[in-house]
Amino acid sequence: MTAEVSKRVAAWRKVVAGILFIIPWILYMLLPIYNTVQPELGGVPFFYWFQTLWLVISSILFIIAVLLLYPSKR
């Protein structure tokens, strides 16, 4: 693999990782979308279980982004 191809792959990985880091941040900033009580899930208001769900999803997205940025450090 030439250095030029390697640089393109690295840039592509950085862009995708950046998008993965930004997705949860944008969603958390859209508070009016999920600032409701209904629907409840097991008696827990939507506001709380939605944030908890996104905490797990954010963790997964961050792990994927780190693996994209540092593929040789597994």
Rank of each mutant, 00 (worst) to 15 (best):
P71Q: 10
Q51F: 03
S6K: 12
L68W: 01
W54P: 00
Q51M: 03
W49D: 03
P45H: 13
V15C: 06
R74K: 14
L53S: 10
K14C: 11
F62E: 02
M29C: 14
L67V: 14
S72E: 09
I19P: 04
S72T: 15
A65Q: 13
P39Y: 12
R74G: 14
P24C: 14
L27P: 01
L61C: 12
A65F: 08
I64C: 11
I57A: 15
M1E: 00
G18L: 00
T52N: 03
L53T: 14
G18R: 07
K7H: 07
L41Q: 11
I57M: 12
A65H: 07
I57W: 07
E40Q: 04
G42M: 01
F46K: 06
F46I: 01
L31T: 14
G42A: 11
L69D: 15
Y70D: 10
F21M: 01
S59D: 13
L61Y: 11
L61V: 10
L53V: 14
I22F: 15
P39A: 06
I26Q: 04
S58N: 06
I22D: 06
F50G: 04
F50R: 00
K14I: 01
T2D: 10
R8P: 05
I64Q: 13
W25P: 03
W54K: 03
P45F: 07
Y70A: 15
V15E: 01
G42T: 02
L69G: 04
Q38R: 05
L30W: 10
I60E: 09
A3Y: 03
W25F: 15
S6A: 10
E4F: 00
K7A: 03
K14Q: 12
F62T: 07
I60G: 00
S72V: 12
L69P: 04
A3R: 10
L30Q: 09
S59E: 12
V5M: 06
L31R: 14
G42L: 13
P39T: 12
L41D: 04
L53R: 08
N35M: 07
V5L: 04
K7S: 02
I57T: 12
A17Y: 12
T36I: 07
V66K: 15
M29Y: 06
I23W: 01
E40D: 09
L27T: 04
S72M: 04
L31G: 05
L55Y: 09
I33M: 11
I57S: 11
F50H: 11
S6P: 01
T2V: 03
L31C: 05
R74P: 02
I33S: 05
T36G: 14
P32G: 05
N35I: 02
L41S: 12
S6Y: 02
W54A: 00
R13P: 06
P71T: 07
I23K: 02
V44Y: 00
